[in-house]
């Protein structure tokens, strides 16, 4: 079997900038080379290389026992991944689209997430896949699934915003002894502005640690995923009016880095939460109550949120553009908050 990584998983080795998607491929490839317990399961990930070609060339290098083309049965193969994890393997399950994770909800929440608590031991597995709108995918190929699982103790949820973080966080997720849901925004996969040269050395980014994407003093914008980029665009526009935003990229949603949010809030006194997920039951509500509980004295205004509207993701471009939160929404909310 060939040992050479295909071009799209060898950008870093050749010193070239990698896209978000290539960074994910690199993480999977390197972890499979590093640890023979790591294997992949999913629909069309082998011979076809994956719906988005994340695993193109993997079957040839690692063989069919480590790159397993599964039947179309998300519940079945996620459950099987749990059994393999019990036996010491470290499965990485691909959902072709994260919308399809719903059939696996039972086994993820009832069996996998409860394993350690029930005394059944650690459950080192990753469920990863593409999420998010903006691609005219309609209701069944555009969802953000984080809040369907955020309420479940025992899971971790990761949602990176750039290639460097995606690679380092995915490596951490694979090495973690707990089940991790890893969301990859499709809008970032091949986005030219996201390409970057990644560190040549093996690196990981710890789960549960947010990063400051932009420093400012006038308000805090807490966000993640593609919305980090929208928020940074908004911050640039606000800066032209002399408003300096502190933009926090959560990177990991569960566990939530409360300290990073609270530290920023101490500095700014104003909190705006931006997410692409829908409004009701979105993570903004949880962040708001946590800051209310622990940092109420620091608040100089209401906590605001910019989110998608409470509806399924519509198919039409005009409708989807209206549905999704945009730069203009963030700017408007930020101006209101700063003037409060």
């Amino acid at each position: 079997m060939p040992n050479e990584a295909p071009a799209h998983v060898a950008r870093t080795r050749s010193g070239e900038p990698a896209t978000f998607l290539e960074a994910i491929s690199e993480a999977l490839w390197e972890e499979m080379e590093r640890d023979e317990r790591v294997f992949l399961m999913g629909e069309d990930i082998g011979a076809y290389g994956g719906a988005f070609k994340v695993t193109r060339g993997f079957l040839e290098r690692f063989g069919p026992s480590r790159v397993i083309d599964t039947p179309i049965s998300e519940g079945g193969f996620t459950g099987a991944a749990a059994g393999a994890a019990h036996m010491g393997l470290r499965p990485v399950v691909e959902m072709q689209f994260m919308d399809f994770i719903s059939p696996a909800y039972d086994v993820l929440t009832n069996y996998i997430a409860t394993s350690l608590y029930r005394g059944a031991g650690p459950m080192p597995l990753v469920v990863r896949g593409p999420v998010g709108g903006g691609n005219r995918g309609g209701p069944f190929h555009s969802q953000n699934v984080e809040m369907a699982f955020f309420h479940t103790p025992g899971l971790k949820i990761v949602y990176p915003s750039n290639p460097r973080d995606a690679k380092g966080l995915l490596k951490s997720a694979i090495r973690d002894d707990n089940p991790v849901i890893f969301e990859e925004h499709k809008g970032l996969y091949r986005a030219p502005h996201c390409r970057e040269v990644l560190p040549a050395e093996d690196y990981v980014i710890p789960l549960g640690s947010a990063r400051t994407a932009l420093e400012g003093e006038d308000l805090t914008i807490v966000t993640y995923g593609l919305m980090v980029h929208r928020s940074l665009e908004a911050a640039a526009e606000l800066a032209r009016d002399g408003i300096r935003a502190d933009v926090i990229d959560l990177r990991t949603l569960l566990p939530l880095d409360e300290e990073a949010i609270a530290d920023s809030l101490k500095k700014t006194g104003k909190l705006l939460i931006v997410h692409e997920d829908t409004r009701t039951g979105g993570i903004a509500g949880e962040i708001a109550i946590r800051m209310n509980e622990r940092s109420f004295e620091w608040l100089d205004g209401p906590i605001l949120r910019v989110t998608a509207i409470d509806s399924p993701v519509p198919f039409s471009g005009e409708l989807e553009d209206y549905f999704l939160p945009g730069v203009r929404d963030v700017v408007t909310a930020a101006r209101y908050l700063v003037q409060y």
């Binding site: 294997f39 026992s65 480590r66 397993i68 519940g75 079945g76 193969f77 996620t78 459950g79 099987a80 991944a81 749990a82 059994g83 393999a84 994890a85 019990h86 036996m87 010491g88 393997l89 499965p91 039972d106 086994v107 009832n110 069996y111 029930r118 059944a120």
Partner: peptide, 25 residues
């Protein structure tokens, strides 16, 4: 021993299939 698989029938079959897959692998 692998214990109770959850509230729905069939979960244990999924899990044990994965464990057996590991044996075969």
């Amino acid at each position: 021993m692998i214990g109770w698989g959850g509230p729905l029938g069939g979960t244990a079959t999924q899990v044990l299939a994965g464990a057996a897959l590991a044996f075969g692998q």
